[in-house]
Design a protein around this nucleic acid. Structure first.
Length: 271
DNA sequence: CCATATACCTGGCAGC
DNA sequence: TGCTGCCAGGTATATG
């Protein structure tokens, strides 16, 4: 579910409300992708300074260390004043004096990990190989072009790998490549300067637009206030195989790359 | 170092 | 209705 826009929308929907809260209790449900890394009891009494995002991770800064949250494929967070009885897919309740942060994740690919600092081995194991943030001004065309020159894989798979630029998942990879007019199978190293520039701009534009639309709610994504997103309504290609291209009306195609489905337009996207 | 396949887990849906 | 197989927004890990 959650790519950069969904994670950022989630962050914005509760960051201000949880800031400066004190943790009163922590309930963990079924196991997630990794162990918490510390006894839940030891987090009681900690203060939450704020919530940052790195790639698709959320970082809750505490007065001692930080919590790294990942939503996996099916995760969502809810932050509310009440703590209803947990359902079978509610795997964490962070009970604070300002509300309860609940992680709901049916597939349990998500994670909640405590680390003593962002530079610690525990945190760096998860964050250490992440590429540049696309929306924070550090993402420049020249560096992007340089990184792509080294990669022989299809550009779609390079975007998904997240070690060049973070946050572009399966939906937005197809969407950005459509907007840039680039066929997803094109080898990253073969992209010319102008096409890299076009892709760079498309990534920034698509991700910003998706954040503004509250993310994509294909199935069940909701932010921490329970609200769905609307970007899926304006998706150009994702999930639209067989439907007419919104630009040229030729049928949208789909294919599989690296075990993931890619959507594209044969007319609008050139190899 | 790079590229690709695999595994993790559950629910929804199409097809029979 | 119920079964089976397939598909799904991610990514660490293993393997070549």
């Amino acid at each position: 579910m959650p790519e950069l826009p969904e994670v950022e929308v989630t962050r914005r929907s509760f960051a201000d409300r949880i800031a400066s809260a004190q943790i009163l209790a922590l309930r963990m449900g079924k196991p997630l992708r990794w162990p918490l890394g510390v006894l839940p009891q030891s987090l009681v009494g900690r203060y939450i300074f704020g919530v940052r995002r790195r790639g698709k991770y959320l970082l809750l800064d505490l007065d001692q260390g930080l919590l790294l949250l990942h939503l996996g494929m099916s995760g969502s967070l809810n932050f509310s004043p009440t703590q209803p009885d947990p359902g079978p897919h509610d795997h964490m309740d962070l009970v604070c004096d300002r509300g309860v942060l609940r992680l709901h994740d049916p597939r349990r690919f998500g994670a909640v990990v405590w680390a003593p600092s962002e530079d610690s081995p525990q945190a760096q194991k998860l964050l250490g190989r992440l590429g540049v943030e696309p929306l924070d001004g550090q993402f420049d065309v020249a560096t992007f072009a340089q990184a792509l020159k080294k990669r022989q894989s299809p550009i779609k798979q390079v975007l998904l790998a997240g070690d060049v630029v973070v946050g572009v998942g399966n939906i937005y990879a197809s969407e950005t490549l459509f907007l840039a007019g680039i066929r997803p199978t094109t080898r990253a190293s073969r992209l010319t300067g102008p096409r890299v520039a076009r892709l760079h701009a498309a990534i920034v534009q698509v991700l910003n637009r998706a954040v503004a639309q509250g993310g994509s709610s294909l199935k069940d994504f909701v932010n921490a206030e329970g609200r769905t997103g609307y970007f899926q309504l304006e998706a150009a290609v994702y999930g639209r195989a067989g439907e007419p291209c919104r630009v040229c009306a030729s049928p949208i195609k789909s294919m599989v790359q690296g075990q993931r489905t890619t959507f594209y337009c044969t007319q609008c996207q050139k190899p």
